[in-house]
Design a protein around this nucleic acid. Structure first.
Lengths: 152, 152
DNA sequence: TTGCTTGCAAAAGGTTTGCATTAAG
DNA sequence: CTTAATGCAAACCTTTTGCAAGCAA
């Protein structure tokens, strides 16, 4: 299997998966919706609504920021996207949940790097036992200093 | 002897610890500073700046919201407090780090409940290995539905 | 056609900032 | 005395909202 075809299939599959799911929910598939879905899947950064808006603007000059927010909220509710919020930063960043992964956030420059395929040890049972909550999800945020900032 | 007789020994110890540390840093110990420090240590909720402000206002009628923010920022920088940010909520909540514990956040009513750490499994080594980050801290957020909301 | 989705602009919320004044050390 | 910290209000930034117009189904 060639590497390049693996990657494009992966993205394409995710895109179709999201769109199909939304159609089944009766959500209308608009041009701007498709653009935001594509963008968030393709992005290897962890964009904010503003970043997505600015990047899409050249191709969708009439799109508004509010529409980006609308679509992100939809994707969030449908579970396709997670929010990332950092200390000293009131912006919300979005992360496409195409696969299981964790984020490491640089405390100096704010860069967010994924790392993959580690089993997150579950504390669900213990948390439920101690608090009585019905546990739905666990999010582990790891903070550190990225290689670039370590050099400085 | 400082009088904080309304506080428990545990709280009093934490309070002295924070104040002593701040003095050593050359930070001035003002009335409002003491009030915020006492409040955050004493609070078993996870207050926002606004909540702290409103609760302290009767006793400190001339205090401003900005001062609460100032002091929370200081405590954050000195590592005495952590920020908690939730989905669908742009408010920052503050948690006094008097001891090791985890938070479980209710996805319906937003209530935040602590539970004591059994042992937060460390992914530091793996994260460092994969990303090159110098890992400084890990924050595990657990979401669920609290007992009250389960009844409804 | 129907009513979900959009674009726009205004408003809302939370947090930060600038500056004159106050008070800790 | 010095100057950090405060109180106040305005500014800021991100996100949400209301509504008329547009477009997917």
């Amino acid at each position: 299997m060639e590497l390049h075809s693996h990657l494009s299939n992966q993205t394409n599959t995710s895109y179709e998966h999201v769109i199909t799911h939304l159609k089944e929910k009766g959500v209308r598939i608009t041009e701007t919706r498709k653009a935001v879905v594509s963008y968030i899947i393709d992005s290897d950064a962890h964009p904010s609504a503003e970043m997505i808006y600015k990047d899409l603007l050249p191709d969708y000059p009439s799109m508004s920021l509010a529409t980006v927010y609308n679509n992100l909220k939809l994707l969030l509710e449908e579970g396709f996207v997670t929010e990332i919020k950092r200390a000293n930063d009131n912006t919300t960043y979005y992360d496409f949940m195409g696969h299981e992964h964790l984020n490491v956030i640089c405390e100096i420059c704010g860069k967010i790097t994924d790392f993959m395929d580690v089993e997150i040890p579950s504390l669900k049972k213990e948390a439920h036992h101690q608090t009585g909550y019905k546990i739905t999800k666990e999010i582990l945020s790891i903070y550190g200093i990225c290689p670039d900032c370590q050099k400085k």
